[in-house]
Design a protein around this nucleic acid. Sequence first.
RNA 1: GGCGAUAUAGCCAAGUGGUAAGGCCGAGGUCUGCAAAACCUCUAUCCCCAGUUCGAUUCUGGGUGUCGCCUCCA
Length: 501
Amino acid sequence: MLKVYNTLTRSKQDFKPIEEGKVSIYCCGVTPYNEPHIGNARPFVTWDVIRRYFTKKGYKVKYIQNFTDVDDKIITAANREEVTWREISDRYIEAYFHSMDALNIRHADIYPRVSETMDDIISMIQTLVEKGFAYVLGNGDVFYDVTKDEQYGKLSGRKLDDNEAGARIEVDDRKHHPMDFALWKAAKPNEPFWPSPWGKGRPGWHIECSAMSLKYLGKKFDFHGGGSDLIFPHHENEIAQSQAAIGDDHSFAQYWLHNGFITIDHEKMSKSAGNFFTVKDILDKYPGEVVRFFLIQTHYRSPLDFSEERIKEAQTAYNRLATSKDYIFDLIRKMDSGNMDMGGQGSSAITVSKAGGLVEMAERLLSLFYDALDDDFNTALAISHMFELSKEINIYYNEIMNSGVAGINQISESDAKIIYRVRDIYMEMADIIGIFEKAVKAVDENAEFKLIDDLMEIIIANRQAAREAKNWAAADEIRDKLKAVGIILEDTAQGVRWKRA
RNA sequence: GGCGAUAUAGCCAAGUGGUAAGGCCGAGGUCUGCAAAACCUCUAUCCCCAGUUCGAUUCUGGGUGUCGCCUCCA
């Protein structure tokens, strides 16, 4: 049974889908006005794992993620560059996809944009005005009236009076209450605008997510997510205006999940503070899968400090998992290549029992892996089980290889089945956390791989000849030169193995 | 001022009312021409005080530190 931490109730709850076998998710996307930073990536990687988990469990998942493409910051950027707001938003939406694709984030089912949801937004505001939850000012601004909403503050757990209104920003005295927020903003010079019953203008910040989620997921849906800085005021306002418009205090999202921040030197990373790393910059130095792995090594609700040292650690840890993957695929390649006397009588009882123990362990770890994810998507714990399986695979691989060619030839058909099953389990784990997608493709599908493989065989054979002649200088030179082009040779007791750096 | 988190080994990070996963780094060892990888061994009484309990790191209260939200922000 899946348990999730719901911000709304501040507790872990059993997850019960609204509709059996289906999960509906709305995750707040980005305002595309500059390059996405690593902090932006965290919720999307988190939700990507959640989607993979549900899909693997057999749920039909509907995932919506918006682009807030009408916004002050976009307008500011457009005016500064003397281009249209659409040019800015298009450019950075493309940048968003470029970065997120590198992190193996699967695309949402729909990416609604504010500019394309204007009718729904306007009609929702109209409903709120009609129901008395909003008021219109003379200039065409429309505000949500928080005092009309008895439940206002239920998500963030704060009362209206507790907030230090005006502490840091001047209160707009045209508002009835300091916490009232804009639903519609009358157009100012040099701003894009759309026609509305209150004159030319554009939507306020929070209304778009309400309109979009209700439009695509209906009045009740399962999950709503985003960074924990969105709890107040963004999500608070969303839940308020949505439930007011619908007229049902239990409508809208049922489970609210919020991820913790990424910090730099333990201070919150943010674009406005200037202390951020863009995903693009990090990708120049580290593979996307490593960046992704770095993000999910920590539970999504915990804060996560980013630094060069941390990501290097993630790289090392990731390599460890990748080595085991290589080992098991290597074993399978050897079996498949027909080197092996499948079904031979030579298989020793020892080998059988070892493989049997391995698969037993693997099944148990897979079960623990799912248990971990069932507990509020504890990827950190789930990954630890993958490491345990990784070690078991390494031990088994070494045992087989150390027994030489005979050892491989002695793998019985039943043991071979076990090896395939272990590979499937390992890759199932990898698939859910979303790693080894690019690497596996290279091994399995890329036709060029075969060529490289053949070439490497020739190079290695030549080097082996040099080694047999104890011409260490030549042998080392070949290894060094290969390393320079990104190929690492490992001389092991069982022969030479190569891999990409 | 209000609200909310969090405090676990050198570092990162899970977790449980019955003395604590996993990763990184480090030390020693196996293997090895060297290197690398892999494997084995070693490294924590869980911020402080009080309480509940047979027993608390895990529950309660207090304290201290750190962080976040209350303004745009993932």
